[in-house]
C-alpha cells in the first residue's frame, strides 16, 4: 500500500475508542437476543405453579406488599395500582421500576396471570439492572439507568388498556412498550386476532400503516420510515416494513379506535422513537367480527 495511505490508515485507526463502547455493544447484543426470543409466540398462561408463586411472594416479600399509589379510576370497580416499586439512586445509576397490579377483577385467573406477568417482568428488569451496574462498575464506571412504569391508555365502562414502558439508558436509550387490553364487562383479555374474522386484518392494517407513513413523510421531510416511499431511496432500503405481526402491540382508544404500536427500531430509525398509528375504523369494518370494541 502507498505510504500516504498507510499514514492515513494509521490516523484512522488512532481515533480514540470511548470506554463505553464495550458496554453499549454488550447491551445491544443482549437486547437483540431478547427481541429475537420474543418473536416466538410464547404466551405464558397462568399455571397453578405461577399462581402459587404469586401467592407466596405476596406473603413473603415486604416489597410486594407495599402499595404505593392508587390510580384514580372513576366509576369502575376494576382498578390498576402500583403494586411494588424498585428504586435505586446512586450517582450514575438510577432505577425506577413501577410494577402495576390489577385489582377487583372477578375473573381471578385473568387477574393472576396478568399480575404475575407484571411482577416477574418487573423483577427481571430489576435483576438485569443490578447485573448491569456491577458490570459497569467493573469497567470503571459509566451511566446506567432504567425507568419502567405504566400508563392507563383507556379506562371506560368497557375497556381497560394498560401500556407498560421500559426505558433503558446506557449512553443512549432504548424504549419498549407493551399493552394489555381487557374487556371489563366480560372480564377477558382482548388479543388482536380475536377482533377480526380472519387473517386478512394483517394485510388491511399493514397497508393502511404504510399509507400513513408515506403521508407523514410527504408532509414532514424530517421523518423517515423503513418503507418504500418512506424518505429513503428504494435502493437504500434494507429489510423494509412489510406487515405487522399477528400479535402486534396495540390498544383500543377511549373513542373505540384501534391503535397499533411499534417499538424503537421496529419500523424506523431509532431517532423516530416509539410509534403509534391509529387505524381508521372505516378501513377495518369489513374485517371486524363486530363493532363492539372498535367503532
Amino acid at each position: 500500500m502507498d505510504e500516504k495511505l498507510q499514514q492515513l490508515e494509521k490516523q484512522y485507526n488512532e481515533i480514540p475508542i470511548p470506554k463505553e463502547l464495550d458496554f453499549v455493544v454488550e447491551k445491544a447484543l443482549k437486547q437483540g437476543k431478547k427481541k429475537r426470543k420474543n418473536r416466538a409466540p410464547q404466551w405464558l398462561l397462568g399455571s397453578a405453579a405461577a399462581a402459587m408463586l404469586f401467592t407466596v411472594s405476596l406473603n413473603v416479600s415486604p416489597a410486594m406488599a407495599r402499595t404505593l399509589s392508587e390510580i384514580p379510576v372513576v366509576g369502575s370497580i376494576v382498578k390498576v395500582l402500583t403494586w411494588t416499586e424498585y428504586e435505586v439512586k446512586e450517582e450514575t445509576f438510577d432505577a425506577d421500576i413501577k410494577v402495576p397490579a390489577i385489582e377487583n377483577l372477578e375473573n381471578k385467573d385473568l387477574a393472576n396471570t396478568l399480575n404475575e406477568k407484571y411482577r416477574s417482568e418487573g423483577k427481571a428488569l430489576y435483576d438485569a439492572f443490578v447485573s448491569d451496574v456491577q458490570y459497569v462498575k467493573g469497567q470503571g464506571g459509566g451511566h446506567v439507568g432504567i425507568d419502567s412504569g405504566y400508563e392507563i391508555k383507556t379506562d371506560n365502562d368497557q375497556i381497560l388498556s394498560i401500556g407498560r414502558y421500559t426505558v433503558n439508558t446506557v449512553g443512549s436509550s432504548s424504549t419498549t412498550m407493551q399493552y394489555d387490553t381487557i374487556d371489563k364487562k366480560e372480564e377477558i383479555l382482548i388479543t388482536l386476532p380475536m377482533l377480526f374474522k380472519d387473517d386478512n386484518y394483517i394485510k388491511t392494517i399493514s397497508e393502511n400503516i404504510k399509507e400513513q407513513m408515506r403521508e407523514q413523510v410527504a408532509s414532514d421531510p424530517d421523518k423517515v420510515f423503513w418503507v418504500k416511499g418512506g424518505g429513503i431511496p428504494d435502493e437504500e432500503l434494507f429489510d423494509d416494513f412489510k406487515a405487522i405481526k399477528a400479535d402486534q402491540q396495540f390498544y383500543i382508544s377511549d373513542k373505540g379506535k384501534l391503535v397499533i404500536s411499534f417499538d424503537k427500531y421496529e419500523v424506523a430509525p431509532g431517532a423516530m422513537g416509539l410509534l403509534e398509528f391509529e387505524i381508521p375504523s372505516d378501513v377495518l369494518k369489513n374485517d371486524l367480527v363486530s363493532s363492539k370494541y372498535i367503532h
Partner: peptide, 16 residues
C-alpha cells in the same frame, strides 16, 4: 456519542 448510537442501532437491527 452519535457513533455509539449508530453502533447500537446497527447491532439491534442486525439481530432482528
Amino acid at each position: 456519542q452519535d457513533a455509539l448510537d449508530v453502533v447500537q442501532d446497527s447491532i439491534q437491527k442486525a439481530m432482528l
